[in-house]
Design a protein around this nucleic acid. Structure first.
Length: 753
DNA sequence: TGAGCGTAGTTTTTT
DNA sequence: ACTACGCTCA
């Protein structure tokens, strides 16, 4: 088998429908990226150029040429979704699932290594991995002990500073002097020291520690490092532009010997610097790894020339990029539309109408996305889409294991798994309510601190005294008995059974069953789902690892719905039609980004705009509004400078005559942001036309919908849930919602319950 | 323990 | 405008 690519045999095992381009054999660049397996390689993969194709090609090449066994390959991603996809794609390319290779996220892989050598960094192998709640709870305690005013210095701020330090793999003793003094008036440094001490005492690591401690481990134990260097003969990294310093160091250490490191990424899609990602890592690759081969993937299989042209023209404004020239041989297609509107309400209406029109032409809603800059923007679109009766899904928000009930349930399991897990214990000590108030917990905490023992142990010691009131004593005795019993039962029951037993016997599920709030039934449902999910796991240990590192967002539902999400969330996805609302100065580019990071911030916002446009396969629609509500206040706004920066040949300006006028930098009549809008007349016209042409749909429905509505009537509203009508005023209703409280809504938004 | 009130913050998000 | 939180008081 000289040519591995002939083995694709896609006919006999057709994968699920994918863009045709991916079914082709690799193009020359993809092939070069795939076959250059020795030495460092940087694959610069522009948007939509088939980087996954190149990556899987490479893996197949290595395996089929017997250059390495699966167990000698390390493949690193940022998200679990990406890891899964890689696993699947390689499997389907080779026709058999690949087993035994290390594929996963930076954090999961680092944790796996760290567990094996935990003692090397002062942890025990069963160390707990903290979630953000745990971190904040711990930090609160530290601030308390240090008498730092949590009003002036909120725990979250410390969390952020410490995380950024860990992103740079800086342990407390490695913080540069200047930062140690400056950060949060010097408090950050002191808190960081305490925080790390506490983590060690608790036998716990946070997400940042996984990488930082792993790097530390490699530095302290050269033999351990060597063993992994020998083991992983080929290393692949996805989304390299998103790596932080700790991840970079980790990779560099692992690749040091053979240097068979292949990093795939796109500097133009680096949008995560605010959480520690260093574009510098990708920009510096050739210096970091001398002799590195750089392969550019520039043929785009996704978007039409107009879309690519608009995106390319925009991103070309950025300094300090490696530079790529994307091209495609798809048909010209439609220009990028830029549409100006009076306000954000009209914007939502316009987008909704456009989508309705597309749907009427038989286009599926799942091929359409609304990509916003901030999650707050989703609300107006949601309301509009509900009014129009168009199904949609908002992506983002809480993930499964971040939900309160899941975290609580997991906390129970953590305590059973390790009775030393104080943070987990504190979380559920009084959930459901057992009458263990602050005073009792404080007593326990103080004793535990003083004696240097875990809280459960402290309780045991205190139960022999009269420290607790009789009632608390009884409750605590019972609770400890419960945990003891569950721990014993965990020996010979599957994790799913234990979970079920615990949730029932502790009264936790019951707590939600009797809760009459709107979301309670969903929580009970989630708990059931957790138990079902648990059934795949043999041990509590493996489940807990899974739940803290691997469990992620449900995938996009396959049902036919419009997708509403942030631009950040959209990276890596594609849609036929994309709506990009809110292209206004201050919102996009976001003011805060400009204020805090200046030119760098602006360039990252521009990359975000680039990511947004390049999500579109066929149609990109940019909108901007002259008025928008910001923190509850109506404010007028100017079109985004990014609109000016779009090359005019690829753009079609439209809207009310004069609305989107004057916009392009490569035309003589450059838009002037400083001297004020030259489109006032246009806005007025837009406003008039809006007023004289009210939305007939709403009024038609309101007329019909108000029938059968009266004070006291119970109704249902898609967003607010159930409620009772309090007052009627034409088509306006005042409703007391059971969950959401008193709201004024249009009759068209509710239905009789 | 829970309701009621005032204050502050409100970009992006994975693991 | 809205919310989430921490505080006070019953």
């Amino acid at each position: 088998m000289t040519d591995p690519f002939e083995l694709q045999d896609l006919d006999s095992a057709p994968p699920p429908a994918r863009p045709a381009a991916y079914l082709d054999t690799p193009n020359a660049s993809q092939r070069e990226a795939g076959e250059t397996v020795d030495g460092p390689v940087l694959v610069l993969a522009g948007a939509g150029t088939g980087k996954t194709r190149a990556l899987t090609t490479r893996l197949a090449h290595i395996l089929l040429q017997n250059r390495a066994h699966p167990g000698e390959i390390l493949a690193v991603t940022f998200t679990n979704k990406a890891a899964r996809e890689m696993q699947e794609r390689v499997g389907s390319m080779l026709g058999v699932p690949v087993e035994g290779w290390w594929v996963g996220t930076f954090h999961a892989l680092a944790a796996r290594i760290l567990r094996r050598h935990a003692e090397g960094v002062g942890l025990k192998p069963n160390f707990a991995i903290l979630d953000t709640d745990d971190q904040v709870r711990l930090l609160k305690q530290i601030l308390d002990a240090r008498e730092i005013d949590p009003k002036r210095f909120p725990p979250r701020t410390f969390s952020a500073v410490i995380q950024r330090w860990k992103d740079r793999a800086l342990a407390p003793d490695q913080i540069p002097q200047a930062e140690a003094i400056d950060a949060l008036d010097g408090h950050a440094m002191a808190v960081y020291i305490d925080y790390q001490d506490q983590l060690q005492r608790l036998n716990a690591a946070d997400f940042g520690d996984l990488l930082m401690l792993c790097v530390r481990l490699f530095q302290l134990q050269p033999e351990t490092l060597k063993a992994y260097q020998r083991r992983f003969r080929y290393i692949l990294v996805d989304e390299y532009q998103d790596t932080n310093v700790a991840q970079y160091l980790w990779l560099r250490l692992l690749a040091q010997g053979h240097r068979n490191l292949c990093c795939v990424g796109d500097d133009d899609q680096s949008i995560y610097s605010w959480r520690g990602a260093e574009v510098g890592n990708i920009l510096r690759f050739e210096e970091d790894f001398p002799g590195a081969r750089v392969v550019r993937l520039e043929r785009n299989y996704r978007s039409t020339p107009h879309i690519l042209g608009a995106a390319s023209g925009l991103i070309a404004r950025n300094q300090g990029r490696l530079g790529k020239t994307l091209w495609t041989d798809l048909d010209e297609g439609e220009r990028v539309r830029v549409h100006g509107v009076w306000d954000s309400i009209e914007e939502a209406r316009w987008v909704g109408d456009e989508i309705e029109a597309r749907q009427a032409r038989g286009e599926r809603l799942s091929t359409i996305a609304i990509l916003v800059r901030t999650s707050a923007q989703t609300r107006e679109f949601e309301e509009r889409l509900i009014t129009l009766g168009l199904p949609y899904q908002v992506i983002g928000g809480l993930r499964f294991y971040e939900r309160q009930e899941i975290r609580d349930a997991v906390a129970y399991l953590r305590v059973i798994h390790s009775s030393d897990d104080d943070l987990a214990f504190q979380r559920i000590a009084n959930v459901p309510k057992r009458g263990l108030g602050q005073a009792t917990l404080q007593t326990i905490h103080l004793h535990a601190r003083a004696r240097g023992v875990p809280m459960i142990r402290a309780i045991r010691e205190l139960l022999g005294t009269d420290e607790f009131k009789p009632k608390a004593k009884k409750t605590l005795t019972d609770l400890l008995d419960d945990f003891e019993r569950w721990r014993v039962e965990a020996q010979d029951h599957a994790p799913a059974e234990i979970c079920d037993i615990v949730l029932e016997e502790s009264g936790y599920t019951e707590m939600w069953r009797t809760d009459k709030s709107l979301e309670a039934p969903g929580r009970v449902e989630n708990l059931r789902e957790l138990v079902v999910g648990l059934s795949e796991f043999e041990t509590l240990t493996s489940f807990l690892e899974h739940v803290s590192l691997v469990m992620d967002n449900e995938d996009l539902k396959t049902t036919d719905k419009i997708t509403v999400m942030t631009l950040h969330g959209a990276k890596g996805l594609e849609f036929d039609t994309v709506f990009l609302p809110g292209w206004e100065e201050g919102l996009f580019p976001h003011q805060r980004s400009l204020d805090e990071s200046g030119t760098q911030g602006l360039e990252e916002e521009r990359r975000l705009a680039y990511v947004g446009i390049t999500r579109a396969k066929k149609r990109a629609n940019i909108t901007f509004a002259a008025n928008r509500r910001v923190y509850g206040q109506w404010q007028s706004s100017l079109p985004s400078r990014f609109i000016d920066e779009l090359p005019s040949d690829h753009v079609e300006r439209e809207g009310e005559p004069g609305l989107a006028r004057g916009g392009f930098a490569d035309e003589a009549s450059a838009f002037d942001h400083v001297s004020g809008p030259g489109y006032g007349a246009g806005w007025k016209r837009a406003q008039q036309s809006r007023q004289s042409r009210p939305d007939d749909r709403v009024f038609a429905r309101a007329g019909a919908g108000a029938d059968g509505l009266d004070v006291g009537q119970r109704v249902f509203h898609q967003k607010f849930g159930y409620g009772k009508i309090r007052a009627l005023d034409g088509d306006k209703l005042e409703i007391d919602f059971e969950k959401a409280g008193r709201k004024k809504v249009m009759a068209s938004f509710v239905e009789v319950a």
